[in-house]
Simulated scan of single mutants.
Amino acid sequence: MRDSGELLRACCLRDASLPAPKTTVSAVRRRVMAPGEEFAFLRVPLQASSAPAWQALNREAFNVQLRVCYCSVLEDCWLLDTRKPEPEPVQACPATPEGGGWES
């Protein structure tokens, strides 16, 4: 998906009359994290005006598949695919196509 709006439309806003939840998206490029540190790159706060869409997203959250490539400061890289039990070591993170994600 190109952005959080596209994700919400695909999973949760099949009824176009529902107001979309507000989202907060944080950049993950050039971010250094400590071992065990967690990072929320997408937050969708529950608001009364968008509760039906938020509830739909909450129901569908575990059906969303995610692929993320990340590297350590020592340049060891891994590809996390939520369809697989463990991240896979890779030589480097692949470049993504302009405005889109990786093809499976």
Rank of each mutant, 00 (worst) to 15 (best):
residue 1 M to G: 13
residue 1 M to I: 10
residue 1 M to W: 03
residue 2 R to P: 04
residue 3 D to Y: 11
residue 7 L to Q: 10
residue 7 L to H: 04
residue 8 L to A: 11
residue 8 L to V: 15
residue 9 R to F: 00
residue 13 L to T: 07
residue 14 R to I: 05
residue 16 A to P: 02
residue 16 A to W: 05
residue 17 S to G: 14
residue 19 P to N: 12
residue 21 P to C: 05
residue 22 K to H: 09
residue 23 T to C: 01
residue 26 S to C: 01
residue 26 S to G: 03
residue 31 R to T: 06
residue 32 V to M: 02
residue 32 V to Y: 01
residue 33 M to W: 02
residue 39 F to Q: 05
residue 39 F to V: 00
residue 41 F to N: 07
residue 44 V to T: 07
residue 46 L to F: 11
residue 46 L to S: 15
residue 47 Q to P: 00
residue 47 Q to M: 13
residue 48 A to L: 15
residue 48 A to Y: 15
residue 49 S to K: 15
residue 49 S to G: 14
residue 51 A to V: 12
residue 52 P to W: 12
residue 52 P to T: 07
residue 52 P to S: 11
residue 53 A to Y: 03
residue 56 A to Y: 12
residue 56 A to M: 13
residue 56 A to P: 01
residue 57 L to K: 08
residue 57 L to T: 06
residue 57 L to S: 05
residue 59 R to C: 07
residue 59 R to K: 15
residue 62 F to M: 09
residue 62 F to D: 12
residue 66 L to S: 06
residue 68 V to T: 07
residue 68 V to K: 05
residue 68 V to F: 01
residue 70 Y to M: 06
residue 71 C to V: 10
residue 71 C to Y: 05
residue 72 S to D: 08
residue 72 S to Q: 09
residue 77 C to F: 02
residue 77 C to G: 02
residue 78 W to H: 07
residue 79 L to T: 03
residue 80 L to P: 00
residue 80 L to T: 01
residue 82 T to W: 00
residue 86 E to M: 03
residue 87 P to D: 08
residue 88 E to K: 07
residue 89 P to V: 01
residue 91 Q to L: 12
residue 92 A to T: 09
residue 93 C to G: 14
residue 94 P to N: 03
residue 94 P to F: 03
residue 95 A to C: 03
residue 95 A to T: 14
residue 95 A to S: 15
residue 98 E to N: 12
residue 99 G to H: 05
residue 100 G to T: 14
residue 103 E to M: 02
residue 103 E to G: 03
residue 103 E to F: 08
